[in-house]
């Protein structure tokens, strides 16, 4: 029952993540904060779409974002530094063709290569063996001489970083992922 809605969400909403993050970054001092808002926005959009599917997904996404930012500014009770500034959602809506990376062309592959190359070494290796050489997690573990549990952890991490790089594109600054990598690395250093 969820399948259709899930697909709609992936195809019509997630594709705009880079633009959304760029928009949120205008009002958020840190990328972490922008990602937190992003998650709240997704939740609201998904909930609303469960009742009635918006006919203009991208416009709906940015309207939700704008409302959330406005709420937040009201709550903060500080004079915000122009949460909207000169960055009106209408400007975001100009690129009416959905992001090219989703078209499956040359650009998409280039973008994917970049996202993949930004993974930490071990993680990159595990993702490659699992995704390209299609070894099972067990075989990846055997190949690299690590436990299956560790392979699983690398996959979980690879997935999150790929998502940030892939959806967030250039709006996800290097700094952010570097910090996150260190944190993850520490956790995996077991």
């Amino acid at each position: 029952m969820h399948r259709a809605l899930d697909r709609w969400f992936t195809d019509e909403i997630l594709v705009h993540e880079e633009a959304l993050l760029r928009y949120l970054r205008q009002a958020c001092p840190t990328l972490e904060e922008a990602h937190d808002l992003r998650q709240d926005i997704y939740t609201r959009v998904y909930e609303a779409a469960g009742n009635a599917l918006p006919t203009q997904p991208k416009a709906f996404l940015f309207a939700t974002a704008r409302n959330l930012l406005a709420d937040r500014a009201r709550r903060a009770k500080v004079v915000s530094i122009e949460p909207m500034g000169d960055f009106e959602p209408s400007l975001v809506l100009i690129d009416d063709v959905s992001p090219e990376r989703w078209c499956g062309g040359r650009q998409a592959l280039k973008h994917l290569a970049e996202a993949f190359d930004r993974l930490p070494d071990r993680c990159r290796e595990v993702v490659w063996l699992r995704r390209v050489e299609e070894l099972s997690q067990k075989d990846v573990a055997a190949r690299l001489g690590i436990t299956e549990k560790t392979v699983e952890k690398h996959i979980a991490k690879g997935m999150r970083l790929l998502a940030d790089h892939w959806f967030g594109g250039h709006a996800s600054a290097e700094k952010h992922t570097a910090v996150r990598d260190q944190r993850d690395e520490r956790r995996h250093a077991d």
């Binding site: 899930d6 992936t10 993540e17 998904y46 499956g104």
Partner: peptide, 18 residues
């Protein structure tokens, strides 16, 4: 659910690494 969908989609994109 939304967090799951997002990661699932990214992981599926990974197939294109092939």
């Amino acid at each position: 659910r939304v967090a799951f969908l997002r990661l699932e989609a990214a992981w599926q994109q990974g197939e294109r690494l092939q």
